[in-house]
Computed example of a mutant assay.
Amino acid sequence: MKPQIRITVLAAALALAGVAHAQEVLKIGFSGPLSGGAALYGKNVLSGMQMAAAEINAKPLEIGGKRYKLEIVALDDKYNPSETGINVQRLVQQHKTAAVLVPHSGGIFAVQAFNEKSKVLLLAYTSLPQATERGNTLTVRIPPDFTGYIAPFTKAMMTLHGKNVALAAADHDYAKAWAAAFKPAWEAAGGKVVAENPMSYNKATDFYSGVSRVLQSKPDVLFIGGASEPTALVAKQARELGFKGGFIIIDQAKIDEMAKVVGGLGALEGSVGVMPVTGDDRPEPAAFTARYRKLNPGKDPSSEISLNYSAVHATVAAMKLAGTVTDAVAIRAKMDQAFRTLPPALNPNDIEGLDSKGGTVANTIIGVVEKGKIKGQFLRALNAGK
């Protein structure tokens, strides 16, 4: 064989070898608020997803005999469900995503109108039980059902403050669903709803008039919640208007993030909400917090960060188990096993798997602000004694 022919054959062989080992791009989509009043919330969700992607890409990723690099494709929907639907269709058609994560109930319901037909797995970051109760076969609900919080929240606030509550949460679909479930439970426990005034948390920063209106009913407790920053402003303005009672904080808002806005936990004394990841001293949450802080100096991980971090790891694990990155039905079928077999380091919230409808199951911790500190209590134990 002539030298130049030998060189050509060798080059061709090397090129074929390169093709055999070339990485393909695996895309998971995201549509959530990256601007507007809920931007911090959306960016937290995305931060957890990106942290998981970086860890996954740090090692060889092989699925179905092919090598992949994971990419998170993020689009801003400004918390607008109609924008979510457009974004997800774009993610499916243009980016060929087999899985898309949406972190708000309005957007989730918009996507559920077409995701089964489009064969895309919907990773639903909402604790709203309706997300999986509708029977959508290609939906996985990432946080546990929020209704488990209601009895412990009610008991804590009635014990600490009294039985008169005013509802002043946000006016989006998720907050409305929380209020609709909370109100009859509060009344069944012997309480009274003395005022109701949902507010547009994502469109305003001045809540004085709305808060003043509900405070005229002299409540012992304020039921508040939406994204963390506006929720904190509602609490801050309530204190400035003389409110001395406690806050029931729905799980979308985070006590530690609120404390940064209101100048510390003092303004939130006697409140109840979801336990911050940074306050959970179990080994895996503590280790996760340390890793996140190392990667993001000066920032703390929220539950949106930790739960969606695990959701991405579980989705990729399900793809490995299914042997496909494109068949959403096969991937969905492996999601329960994927969550159950996640290494503890990748599962700081201790998700135990999925229930029969596709919602995660976990022994969540709630937090009560007492004497300037957040004290944690396991939800399962509290509900067992209700």
Rank of each mutant, 00 (worst) to 15 (best):
R67M: 00
A333G: 06
I351L: 12
A99N: 07
L26Y: 14
Y125T: 05
D336F: 00
Y292M: 08
G65H: 07
V221K: 03
N308L: 11
Y149A: 06
Y79R: 03
G298F: 05
K260M: 08
I248R: 01
T154S: 13
K43D: 13
N197D: 12
V368K: 12
L268V: 02
V262G: 01
D327Y: 11
G359W: 06
L321V: 01
V165R: 04
Y41D: 02
N363Y: 07
A180R: 10
A330W: 08
L160Q: 12
H95W: 14
A53T: 03
P198W: 02
A311P: 03
G162F: 10
R6S: 08
L138W: 09
T132V: 13
I248N: 03
A181I: 01
A188G: 06
A381K: 13
K43M: 10
E269L: 12
E269T: 00
I224R: 04
L321R: 13
Q89R: 15
V193Q: 04
A345V: 12
A168P: 02
I305W: 01
G266F: 06
A328T: 04
G36Y: 09
T154I: 07
K27S: 11
N164K: 15
K334T: 06
L295G: 10
K43A: 12
P60W: 07
S35H: 06
G359M: 06
G107H: 10
A180K: 11
K386S: 14
S105A: 10
A204H: 08
F153I: 01
V9N: 07
L138C: 07
H313Y: 10
T324M: 02
G358I: 01
M275L: 15
G210I: 00
A345G: 13
K59A: 14
A362R: 04
I224P: 04
L346F: 12
D350H: 14
D355A: 06
V234P: 05
D171K: 11
T137L: 12
P60R: 10
I142P: 08
K59Q: 15
K218H: 13
K254E: 14
K163F: 11
V92R: 11
L321S: 11
T315R: 09
L14F: 15
L46P: 08
A290G: 04
A253D: 01
G298N: 10
L40W: 04
E370K: 14
E352T: 07
V214Q: 04
A195V: 08
S31Q: 07
M1F: 13
S31V: 11
I250Y: 05
T84L: 00
G263K: 00
S200V: 01
D220V: 08
N347Y: 07
H172Y: 14
Y174F: 15
F153T: 02
T84R: 08
A318T: 02
K254R: 12
H95E: 15
K69Y: 00
L321Q: 13
T147P: 09
K218R: 11
G65M: 05
A110H: 03
L26R: 05
T97I: 08
A22M: 08
E257T: 03
V165E: 00
G32L: 09
Q130T: 14
G353C: 04
F378C: 00
L379A: 09
P129M: 10
A179E: 09
V211S: 03
A322M: 12
V214P: 02
P230E: 02
P144G: 05
D281H: 15
G246R: 05
R239W: 11
F146C: 09
E352R: 13
F207M: 09
A362C: 06
L307K: 10
A156C: 00
R6F: 09
N347R: 06
Y149F: 15
